[in-house]
Design a protein around this nucleic acid. Structure first.
Lengths: 189, 189
DNA sequence: GAAAAGTCTAAACATTTGTTATCGTTTAAC
DNA sequence: GTTAAACGATAACAAATGTTTAGACTTTTC
């Protein structure tokens, strides 16, 4: 649990004792390639911290078509955070695309942290703000940039993504078909 | 400043005295129809609370085309919150579409609140979380629903929007042209 | 290491969406 | 109240994007 300590210490002022107490409520879990980490229609009661590996977040539309809407990389928190907060059933599937190790933070631990860590609320605010900025940036880009521009820039958001994720999932993330992405790449050669 | 008091009291436990001290650092400002509330390329140092009226948030793409990406209604907070936090120049234009009255919360007041309100950090977290959920929902919908479906549902997100905002701005928000929206409406008759 | 599954490109064709222009109507400004 | 501007629908055409199928290549699995 070394990396999560570092990440938390970068965000807030927190003593070793506080960290120990907080992390004693967490545990490690591993997933194989392709394994499902979290399923839709279940209330998410955990937040995951990515120790190793890669998780994609998927949503299905009314026609049953799957859309990849996010990739989670090392040192990041991942969850259906909305429905974790709302305590409502998730719409998302979380799937490990590589051998993945996460730290599981149960709701009880999160709530304990808000109450008992000196800067617990602040950490909650900073995480929410961090992901707000990520989402805002993303929405901004969908309006103001073409899929090709976003493709050309995607490694800035997800480092090394091209070597870790098949192109059709990237196309899905961009909101276009893999055939179309292939065409766009060809056109710029 | 009655409504902002109520909104804050619904979010956190806060004494009258705290509220008085906090709000004494805020002031009211009015804008006429079409007036610009906030401009791009300026660091946003204020968060606005909507007392009355309607503000749209606009971003321009590389081709100079404008896209309406958000509407702010009564009792909501509005700002380029990302760049407020990052203290970087905004990409957004905020424009009043109606006679609008806002409460201006300068950065100094916000920072004061985090420090000195008993539950200041918590309020920050709740606001960030609230808008996170809004954005998440929005991203979810862009992937899993058609523009027509989102059009049919838009009044759930922005009550009475059809009577307050011209259709081509709604089309812009949906990411389609006004001509196309007109076509979609016709097809479902 | 062989078989199976997955991946990317390509082409042909279908469908969706954008562009431009026009027209009748509504709304806003003086 | 009158005039100018804005608005929404529509049609014709152009461009962008999706669908389906096929084939070559790569990766995974046993």
């Amino acid at each position: 649990m070394e990396r999560i300590r570092q990440v938390m210490q970068q965000m807030i002022t927190v003593s070793d004792e506080e960290l120990n107490n907080f992390l004693s409520q967490a545990f490690t879990k591993t997933f194989k390639r392709q394994e499902i980490v979290s399923r839709p229609q279940v209330v998410p009661n955990e937040i995951f911290f990515m120790n190793k590996g890669l998780i994609r977040v998927v949503i299905a539309d009314n026609a049953g078509q799957e859309h990849t809407i996010h990739f989670a990389l090392e040192d990041q928190f991942i969850s259906d955070y909305s429905n974790f907060m709302l305590q409502q059933p998730s719409f998302y599937t979380l799937q490990a695309l590589e051998e993945t190790e996460v730290i599981v933070l149960p709701r009880t631990a999160i709530d304990w942290g808000y109450k008992n860590l000196q800067e617990g609320e602040k950490m909650g605010r900073l995480i929410a703000e961090y992901y707000f900025i990520y989402q805002d940036n993303r929405i901004k880009n969908t309006y103001s940039r073409t899929p090709k521009e976003r493709y050309d820039n995607i490694a800035a958001v997800f480092p090394n993504i091209h070597n870790r994720v098949p192109q059709h999932m990237i196309a899905s993330y961009l909101g276009i078909t893999s055939v179309h992405l292939s065409r766009l790449k060809k056109a710029s050669r």
